[in-house]
Design a protein around this nucleic acid. Structure first.
Lengths: 146, 146
DNA sequence: CATATTTTGTTGCAATCGCAACGAAGTCAA
DNA sequence: TTGACTTCGTTGCGATTGCAACAAAATATG
């Protein structure tokens, strides 16, 4: 039966490989900071963006992080409820929402970022000299299909 | 505010980058074969595994494809309902389910595989000589955190 | 042998997802 | 200005998700 099918090498098939590896890394890492605080991946991405982009809107995050706007919106609602961020209407353009970190949000980032940094270092150590090649390839893929 | 946070480069952060790119590639591709047939990503992975591994159990697929067993189970149920695969109890170990492609399943693979192959070729063309480096890096990551 | 423990696949359930629809606000053109 | 169109964030909804609980079967332990 198998021999009637076209040749196909699943083990080198990039959409599949990337999905498997990405899911594994994210889950791996999520365990670490989910255990410390109740932060989900989406919430973590939003916090991170606020931390390094200053005040941003839902739309900004959606674009930057490839997260559906409803996902960003709901993550932001949860983060606000927990006191990590504030929401405020942008007076310049009242459709926009200005999201900003609270003190508590900054504190939690101070705890979570080192975890992320350590994980990244670990990956880079594992990859060794291949790290740069990987990043370069990802650069190409990021441009290629955007 | 930003300057009080530890340094962190989101744009080179691998768990994040890999997730974004993997999701983009998969969605991109899923559109193509979802349009042709009603096949989801999970179903597609199961079909592919059956095509190239002969008879396998739910557990085999779970291990090989990093898909939760409930996801595999439900995908298999749908595939059986649509006539793409058969389920049969393994008489050697009656806990195991032997999944196998039907003629119709083989046919659909004949249509879908060329789409996947073309997409992979396109990616490899875009990556050019970086393709090998990327695959090598993924090999390392696959081992590293398993 | 009996009976605990492990493995396999399914299912119940609450949480989450992405998409589409929507109201509010802004922009554009006549 | 008015009215059509676009943009932004929220929400409703059905589908999907992952986890835990479960029954059936196999295996290990006594």
């Amino acid at each position: 039966m198998t021999e009637t099918l076209p040749e196909f090498d699943l083990d080198r098939y990039l959409p599949y490989r990337l999905t498997v590896i990405a899911a594994r890394l994210s889950a791996d890492l999520a365990k670490q900071y989910k255990a410390k605080h109740g932060i989900s991946i989406a919430e973590w991405r939003v916090l991170l963006n606020l931390g390094y982009s200053g005040e941003v809107s839902v739309r900004d995050i959606e674009r930057r992080v490839s997260l559906d706007k409803s996902k960003v919106s709901r993550a932001a609602t949860r983060l606000e409820a927990e006191g990590y961020i504030t929401k405020a209407v942008d007076e310049g353009d009242r459709r926009l929402l200005k999201l900003a970190l609270t003190e508590k949000g900054i504190e939690v980032l101070h705890e979570l970022i080192p975890i992320a940094v350590a994980y990244q270092r670990e990956l880079e150590r594992t990859l060794g000299p291949q790290t740069e090649a990987l990043q370069a390839a990802l650069d190409i893929l990021m441009d290629g299909s955007g």
